[in-house]
Amino acid sequence: MENQSIKTITLGLFFTIATVVSFAQVPDEVILSLKTGNASTLSNYFNDNIELVVLEKDDVYSKDQAKQIVANFFSSNTAQRFAIIHQGGKEGARYAIGNLTTQSGVYRVYFLLKEKGSQVYIHQLRIEKQ
């Protein structure tokens, strides 16, 4: 009886941890688009309106405006690598902080993703000089 209780508790704990980890993960395509400087792929994850901070640009922009601003950033700052240094979240929302290395320097990237239906959208994106 006691052995069965331990198995049940262990199984419950495993599923709880797996659920938390799955909510905290950032889609691979988002990470790859930052590593390669692909604004087009990244913008597929933008919400219809996104709070965007890219160097001196700081406002709420439409998806198309934000795509152009990020594309301009990547055309001036060729991406070399991107690494997430911290991420987390809870049901329905995730965030990540990472370092983007470009030929012109290192930038700190912050983004917030939220679920809408079965899709995940970037609601906030910040790219700031480190």
Rank of each mutant, 00 (worst) to 15 (best):
M1K: 12
E2F: 13
N3L: 15
Q4P: 09
I9A: 15
G12L: 07
L13H: 03
T19N: 09
V21L: 14
V26I: 15
E29P: 00
L32Y: 05
K35Q: 13
A39W: 02
A39Y: 07
T41R: 13
N44I: 04
D48V: 02
D48N: 13
L52M: 09
V53D: 14
L55Y: 08
L55M: 15
D58L: 07
Y61H: 02
S62I: 06
S62H: 04
S62Q: 02
K63W: 00
Q68E: 15
I69Y: 07
N72L: 11
F73H: 04
S75N: 14
S75R: 14
S76D: 10
N77Y: 10
T78D: 01
T78G: 01
R81W: 03
I85Y: 10
G88R: 05
Y95C: 03
N99E: 13
L100M: 07
T101E: 12
T102L: 10
T102M: 06
S104T: 13
G105Y: 02
V106E: 14
Y107K: 04
V109D: 05
Y110Q: 06
Y110N: 08
F111A: 03
L113D: 04
K114C: 03
S118C: 00
H123V: 08
Q124Y: 09
L125D: 06
R126C: 01
E128Q: 06
